[in-house]
Amino acid sequence: MDPINFVILASILFAIGAAAVLLRRNAIIAFMGVELMLNAANLALVAFSRMHGEIDGQIMAFFVLVVAAAEVVVGLAIIIAVFRARQTISLDEPAELKG
């Protein structure tokens, strides 16, 4: 089976992750949506690596993994800080960006 199907799979996962970010109000769930989108991108990278016969794609996915880990650390720290300040992690509550 053609590895291109993994790219299609990655597209579907990406769309699901994006929808989660848009629709869920729980910050942690939305954050997990972001993670899913990142992983979908990783899957596409690895699939391309397989198709081209080059290992660099995997390396890129590795880098994405590392950056995602750093992002998770900071993101979760922010969620905790917000929770401490507001006792909630709903994304609709901190509307202080309102112009």
Partner: peptide
């Protein structure tokens, strides 16, 4: 135009998407 700046992160995310 300010009304589009509703402070809702998810609206911004939608706009980005």
């Amino acid at each position: 135009v300010r009304k589009t700046q509703n402070g809702q992160v998810r609206s911004y995310a939608l706009t980005m998407l």
